[in-house]
Design a protein around this nucleic acid. Structure first.
Length: 297
DNA sequence: GCAGATGCTCACATTACCTCA
DNA sequence: CGTGAGGTAATGTGAGCATCT
């Protein structure tokens, strides 16, 4: 299920793996869904988190103070438990695809008599199965608040929220799906912008370094100047953390560090440097990758 | 334990409607 | 008033996972 959302996503992040074993460039941008990181969590995490010990779903933690277990306040044309779903499960009509295909009657059955659209506009909506309903401010607000808490709903939560909002569960489900999509789209745009800046900075840094190389080559041709020049960029490694530090030339640190972070928190994990050791004349041989933790002596 | 069927939910792409400049 | 753009509700499809048989 590589392309599936884990549904948990309290942060959106984008990882750019530079190499195996190396920290990734990671953007944690918003406390929202994280559709890009499917691999991090199993998809049912919310459901599992919200499921109480007896296997029931704890919906009270959800909806921000809204007790979704209480009886619905509004008369719901979708019978309790029956919803409008033909398969008499908690799930909405989204349930069986086959049955969704018979939509003709199903939609008819589901449609508006009970949803918010059932009021005045519904007259028109009744005929056109695709008549669009506009959610009220209150409905949108509650949906947004709920979404902030978690970007996916378990069936019980969905049902409860639908009742609270006087909507069909399918509408709530659709709203959340669309909301996740919007979030992801926005996040992609932010990430894209950030990476663009990254790229520009690195390009600039690359140019600068190439100029530096050229200068050094030129200087090499006139050795008398050697003695008076500033030391070139050198790399030293901290023995304890094995990270490279730049001395003499601050330039190398520029590319990554000069990139302004996107609107929300960005963790830019710098690529772990090559194991160059200034304390030894011999280059460190690259150890084969060993997942087992190594004991340092 | 394994395989197939079924049900559910998801992401994603797309359509269709609504609103507004 | 007509129109195009943007927003978004709704639909269709394919896929992963859980459960059941």
């Amino acid at each position: 299920m590589g392309d599936k959302d884990d549904g948990l996503g309290l942060s959106l992040s984008l990882s750019l793996r530079c190499a195996q074993n190396q920290p990734s460039l990671k953007l944690n941008l918003m406390p929202l869904a994280s559709p890009c990181m499917h691999h991090l969590q199993p998809k049912n995490t919310w459901n599992e988190l919200l499921r109480s010990s007896d296997g029931d779903l704890d919906t009270r933690s959800f909806l921000g103070g809204l007790d979704v277990n209480r009886a619905p306040t509004t008369v719901d044309c979708e019978e309790e438990g029956g919803v409008s779903s033909p398969n008499s499960t908690i799930s909405s009509i989204s349930g069986k695809r086959n049955e969704r295909h018979n939509v003709g009657d199903e939609v008819e059955a589901e449609r508006p008599s009970c949803s918010q659209a059932s009021d005045d506009e519904n007259g028109a909506a009744g005929d056109d199965p695709r008549k669009k309903l506009r959610l009220s401010k209150e409905q949108s607000l509650l949906l947004e608040e709920t979404f902030k808490e978690h970007s996916t709903l378990n069936p019980k939560q969905k049902l409860a929220l639908a009742k609270e909002l006087n909507l069909r569960p399918r509408q709530v489900e659709v709203w959340f799906q669309n909301r996740r999509a919007r979030t992801k789209l926005k996040q992609t745009e932010v990430d894209c912008e950030y990476l663009k800046r990254c790229c520009e900075n690195l390009t600039e840094e690359n140019r600068r370094l190439q100029r530096e190389v050229q200068d050094l080559r030129a200087l090499k041709l006139s050795p008398q100047l050697y003695m008076h020049m500033n030391p070139p960029t050198t790399l030293t490694m901290c023995p304890s953390c094995e990270r490279l530090a730049i001395s003499s030339s601050p330039s190398l640190a520029v590319a990554a560090s000069s990139i302004p972070a996107p609107t929300s928190a960005v963790v830019l994990n710098q690529q772990r440097p090559l194991p160059v050791s200034p304390w030894t004349t011999k280059p460190i041989s690259h150890r084969p990758f060993n997942p087992a933790p190594e004991s340092r002596s």
